[in-house]
Nucleic acid binder design. Structure first.
Lengths: 226, 226
DNA sequence: TGGTCTTGGATTGGATCCAATCATGGAGTA
DNA sequence: TACTCCATGATTGGATCCAATCCAAGACCA
């Protein structure tokens, strides 16, 4: 019980924030699958905190939609149906062009170089995990210069909601589809370099739309076999 | 073991939920102005609870953007600048046509009759408080038949964010502007009756866009004089 | 034998207590 | 007079304890 043996958990930020980030990451990385039950005490012990900050963290995650909270019953990692996932993509289709328009004018040359690097890395890798990771970095970087109150956070949350399924259906893309995705990424960088915000916005919209339609052809990703 | 995977039906009634709703309503009704400090103990006493559920409620409200939480300092009702308010309206401009498209096919005749009633009530009242209240009911009813995972809640949150400012700039609309707003409402009902989802979506988009432009002509609403 | 009731354990929800942190104001000094 | 430093009170953050609720297994009875 003496705290000398147990190193006090890192002090930056408050505990609830740390716990929330930890759970978010665990979900994103696939360590916590959709449908998994989240027991407060278990989480508390895992993060070296008491249950109070855990409950606050779960409240935040519920508001983000990542966790489903049932009074007097418990918390589960949210599970999406195909229809719900399509809804998230429809929403992204509307919001990300807007967010990109906010960010595009402030992207530096270095940002654009990095975007090109990431696009190239995506077309050369065969590892799905790596692809998904780089894909996320690519898009988030393209939005990173937007100075927004909530739109940026909102889009990131939408990505988080579908992250567990992204890997699953990325495997299913055939060579042609992958080629088209890479072309779209490249087109987007070109448009951004030319200062063609409208063109970049249209490209990202089409990109998300195409991904959504790919998704809807693979309902097997969402079968609740577990 | 597998019984942990599916969440049982929800049951409402915990304190954190009540507190969150209470604060939300207080902000919406203007009892809590943007910038107001929220002291945990004060709130706890007001709702007859302890500080623990209050802290959970504040976490939720922070995730919604209604409350700004500063570690080790406290909580304040979020205050928007003009630019941030315009961002919310830009976001609504993209999302509400989509949400309306989800809802429109499921609106009943009774719903449409009620919408017409509300539109008429808006054009006949001179009381600003009444107008704002009915306006919200009108739009929320038009979305109420959408069966969405998050889009419906998301739009409602966006409305909540700007609710404190809506009353302020509604006063500033001249007779012409009000007339146009009423026409738009009526046009929307007509399009919905005809089953013209696309037309209704365009109408609501134009309606929000017009409101946003009206808003940007009245920066004085956002001067931090208080 | 089948259904209902009860009881125990497990888990969440809430209250109280203690620790950590921050703002405020006053004393002391150049 | 103005600036620094420190002490003190107020407020938030976290831990522990207790109450309420739910689920499941087994007892009881028709």
């Amino acid at each position: 019980m003496t705290s000398d043996l147990q190193a006090p958990a890192s002090r930056d930020g408050n505990a609830a924030m740390r716990v929330a980030s930890g759970i978010r990451d665990a979900i994103a990385h696939g360590d916590l699958a959709p449908g998994s039950r989240l027991r407060q005490e278990e989480i508390a012990e895992r993060f070296g905190a008491s249950r109070v900050p855990v409950r606050e963290a779960l409240k935040s995650l519920e508001a983000e939609g990542l966790v489903t909270l049932v009074p007097n019953a418990g918390a589960w990692v949210s599970r999406l149906t195909l229809a719900e996932c399509e809804e998230v993509y429809q929403t992204r289709e509307r919001l990300e062009p807007l967010l990109l328009a906010h960010s595009a004018p402030h992207l530096s040359e270095a940002d654009l170089d990095r975007l090109e690097e990431l696009a190239a890395a995506m077309s050369s890798t065969d590892d799905v995990g790596e692809f998904v990771r780089v894909d996320r970095e690519f898009h988030m970087l393209s939005y990173s210069r937007a100075e927004t109150l909530m739109l940026g956070d909102l889009v990131e949350r939408l990505w988080n909601l579908t992250q567990p399924y992204r890997r699953a259906y990325t495997v299913l893309a055939d060579a042609d589809t992958r080629r088209i995705m890479h072309d779209e990424h490249h087109l987007m960088v070109v448009a951004l370099r030319e200062g063609d915000v409208e063109g970049a916005a249209r490209t990202i919209e089409g990109h998300i739309r195409r991904t959504r339609r790919l998704l809807s052809r693979h309902p097997e990703v969402f079968t609740t076999s577990g």
